[in-house]
């Protein structure tokens, strides 16, 4: 039995080194060597080559001329993550959604509320959702067209071009990456 105590302690130390230090360091080394772009957070660069964010982390857009992402209780601060965790019967969920709908009406007088997709007025789980549904991009086109002077046709084409399908044509949902979409939009505006 005494022998087993020593083996247990030695086994603990061996496995802390093996699984807790060697394994993650080896993985980091291999990842950095063979897939540095993915391993470092899929950074997005602008035309000048400066890093403007990560393709995987959503951003806050205060200018209504840009496509807006989903509701984020943490204002897309990537230092943290998460949401308010409002349960389905929570009155604050109802209030927040009603406020979002009112704000939508003011900013998008030309689009009926019945076309506003639920994804645009709900908080994502991570608070950092980089995507919106294609329908959520489409309904913003009239507003953006008015504010930027770009034609609705041009914007439709842009959204279509930026829409990603399901992975392997099967898994997940069709989606539009808001940062990449707005980056293209910015380029079109300055042309």
């Amino acid at each position: 039995m005494k022998n087993n105590v020593f083996v247990a302690i030695r086994a603990s130390i061996v496995f802390i080194v093996l699984c807790g230090i060697l394994y993650p360091l080896a993985c980091t080394g291999l990842a950095q060597l063979f897939m540095p772009s993915q391993a470092n957070g899929s950074l997005v660069h602008n035309a000048e080559g400066e890093v403007i964010g990560s393709a995987l982390i959503g951003q806050q857009y205060d200018n209504p001329a840009y496509f807006q992402g989903r509701v984020s209780s943490i204002d897309y601060n990537g230092a943290g993550s998460g949401s308010n965790n409002y349960g389905p019967s929570n009155p604050e969920l109802l209030q927040r959604t009603k406020d979002s709908i009112e704000a939508w009406k003011t900013a998008n007088p030309d689009v009926p509320v019945s076309e506003l997709p639920i994804a645009l007025v709900t908080n994502s789980g991570s608070g950092l959702d980089p995507h919106i549904t294609p329908a959520s991009a489409e309904v913003q086109i009239p507003r953006i067209s008015k504010l930027t002077g770009l034609s609705q046709q041009q914007l439709h084409e842009l959204v279509e071009e930026q829409t990603e399908g399901r992975d392997l044509g099967l898994f997940g949902e069709p989606r539009v990456n808001v940062l990449e979409l707005n980056l293209k939009l910015q380029a079109m505006m300055t042309q």
């Binding site: 109802l94 709908i101 509320v113 639920i118 709900t122 549904t133 329908a135 949902e173 989606r175």
Partner: peptide, 22 residues
Amino acid sequence: VMNSLGIDASQGSMEGKEVRFG
């Protein structure tokens, strides 16, 4: 509660969910 607000809620309950997973 959310479905009765007059928005397009056909996607289902998206509160707390991510667009890429639906």
